[in-house]
Write a protein that binds this DNA or RNA. Structure first.
Lengths: 214, 214
DNA sequence: CGGGATCCGTTACGATACTG
DNA sequence: CAGTATCGTAACGGATCCCG
């Protein structure tokens, strides 16, 4: 009965937008690319109204993009949902050309950073075996890098790390927009907290990732 | 006074969606990737309400994604607007996984095909020098291929072509979704109308493009 | 207290009619 | 042909309320 608004065209672009084109849908998926998240976490992180979040979560579940495993209280991406990574990445690259708002709304967390970070690291050849705890402003990420795969997750602070570093969201934005070169980023905007013997491998990987980004 | 709805976040994904995330915006851009188009052409092609089309065209112009050159009655992409191609391409690839609607709305034209066509042809190495007139159902495209660049435009029937071929939207969709192999496409779903001595070069290019698509 | 559901005012969308 | 004007409907957004 509830005739949802959709394009109903054969064109795959329109079909994609029917699935993920609603307001907030792509931002919810974006945050889930940082790992499973609970309702509250998404709510606070996005600043979305609770009724909308509820509706979107239901729709995205019905479309098969996300799920909430039995017994779990967290939503996560399905295999299908993980397929939105390239869309989000291209949006991120494109969005960088627009001026930053002078008075942006503060997000409740920086989950948004996990996806682009994973994508750029994924393109690095001969990645080191390394688990890195990455503090960005007040948030923590865990990067598990191997030669074959790389995973970036929000939190996971309990996993033992080979290296602990700190940087800022600001620096990340500058790098993404090309105004901060890779060398300047690693030399001036990343502070090593612990495990400095692994720093060279990490800095090398980050530098390669940024250089590779075009 | 008219505070447009936007996310107002620093995240480049959100900034991109503030620019192109409104309903119809990406589909308008999609159609303009097939070359300049007049108001009427967009209106008929998309099946959008006229007030919405008007609003979107204004917004996209203000954002700098499209323009209407002085003296021209057609809208076209700016350099910035052309930068949406990768976003649209990733949406197209992703949208193919969803079932086609059993009773889709018929678009007024097939402009939607120009962008994916250009992108896949762009990835072909050693492209032949060739101008192809491509009939798809009742629409006509002109493909201008050189080793260095490739251009796909809706119409342009006046440009002399080396080869004239015909295929169907259906076949195109099947190819895009992977259910029709490149070999079957060129051998069974493309009819050569004129200039058959150039057919091999074109078929080779199409086959390479489809194979390259992953 | 986390995870929503309900209510309600506001904004956006969509169809149609109309105008320069 | 290229849009405006109008108006009913659906979606959004904020707040509050409810339930296990």
């Amino acid at each position: 009965m509830t005739a949802k608004r959709h394009y109903n065209l054969l064109c795959p672009i329109a079909r994609a937008l029917d699935a993920v084109g609603d307001r907030w849908a792509l931002l919810i998926l974006r945050d889930l690319h940082a790992g499973p998240a609970r309702y509250q976490e998404l709510h606070e992180g996005l600043g979305i109204a609770t009724n909308l979040l509820s509706t979107r979560l239901t729709e995205l579940t019905e479309t098969g993009l996300i799920c909430k495993p039995d017994g779990s209280s967290a939503y996560e991406l399905t295999e299908l949902g993980r397929g939105t990574d390239r869309i989000l990445w291209e949006l991120a690259r494109f969005g960088g050309v627009f001026d930053r708002s002078p008075d942006p709304r503060e997000p409740g967390n920086l989950r948004t950073l996990a996806l682009p970070l994973r994508i750029v690291l994924d393109a690095v050849p001969n990645r080191p075996d390394l688990t890195v705890r990455l503090h960005i402003d007040d948030d923590v990420f865990t990067i598990v890098s191997t030669r074959a795969t790389v995973d970036v997750r929000y939190g996971d602070s309990s996993v033992p790390a080979d290296l602990v570093v700190r940087t800022s969201y600001e620096a990340f934005l500058d790098v993404g927009e090309g105004s901060l070169p890779a060398a300047d980023f690693v030399s001036g905007h990343v502070e090593v907290i612990e495990g400095s013997q692994n720093a060279a491998a990490f800095f090398g990987m980050m530098g390669a990732a940024i250089a590779h980004q075009h």
